[in-house]
């Protein structure tokens, strides 16, 4: 079915491209973006969703393999945040804040649907698996390839907490402070120690064998 051929005299094309929104906000600090969102700026919300929905989705899979549960959780936190606009407190690191929220939301939803013990122990033990990404890794020669395998083995020996901390620290570029909050540590130094120990155990695999 087509619409009536109602031709315009001079059609004007108006498209505020998404890039435009990204351009406006990407130079702003997290604090400023959050404040704009809190004031009800729909573009700020649009930017938050655009930037964080995909990474929350990726992050969510570390807690559950249920895609619809993750979608619901993302949806719930955004609906909640939108409903609280005007009364939200300051947020200095949006990623850290949203990661904490999604974690809480997913675990809450998991608890509602399954038995508690399953979530706390086994289910999460295998999450936060790390891969040494090939394109940036040291493989150029056979020795390097061997070293990479050893490094990967070393990483696989780490505890789930250590892997999580390394991913948050290197892949997600979060600070010790943020990591401590996400991982529910009372003190920032606990996060420091956790990462330091992991690195020490991997040190020999990172250094070239001489």
């Amino acid at each position: 079915m087509s619409i009536n051929p109602r031709k315009s005299n001079e059609p004007t094309h108006i498209t505020l491209h998404s890039q435009e929104i990204v351009r406006i906000f990407e130079s702003k600090s997290d604090c400023e973006i959050w404040a704009a969102f809190n004031k009800g700026d729909e573009m700020a919300f649009n930017y938050l969703y655009r930037v964080y929905a995909p990474i929350l989705y990726q992050y969510g899979f570390q807690f559950s393999r249920d895609s619809s549960l993750i979608q619901d959780s993302i949806q719930n936190i955004f609906i909640y945040l939108r409903s609280k606009r005007g009364e939200l407190s300051e947020v200095a690191n949006i990623k850290g804040y949203l990661y904490r929220s999604i974690q809480r939301e997913i675990i809450k939803n998991l608890k509602a649907s399954t038995k508690r013990e399953q979530i706390n122990s086994d289910a999460l033990e295998n999450s936060f698996q790390i891969e040494i990404s090939p394109e940036t890794s040291f493989i150029q020669s056979e020795t390097n390839s061997l070293r990479r395998t050893k490094l990967q083995n070393g990483i696989d020996q780490l505890t789930c907490k250590q892997r999580k901390a390394l991913l948050l620290f290197y892949q997600e570029e979060l600070s010790y402070n943020e990591i401590a909050q996400i991982m529910d540590f009372k003190e920032v130094k606990t996060a420091r120690k956790l990462i330091y120990r992991a690195i020490t155990s991997l040190k020999e695999f990172i250094k070239p064998a001489r």
Partner: peptide, 15 residues
């Protein structure tokens, strides 16, 4: 630097 850049999630879940 190489080590830092190489740390990545084993599984990727694109939305």
């Amino acid at each position: 630097a190489t080590f830092i850049r190489s740390i990545d999630y084993q599984e990727k879940h694109l939305m």
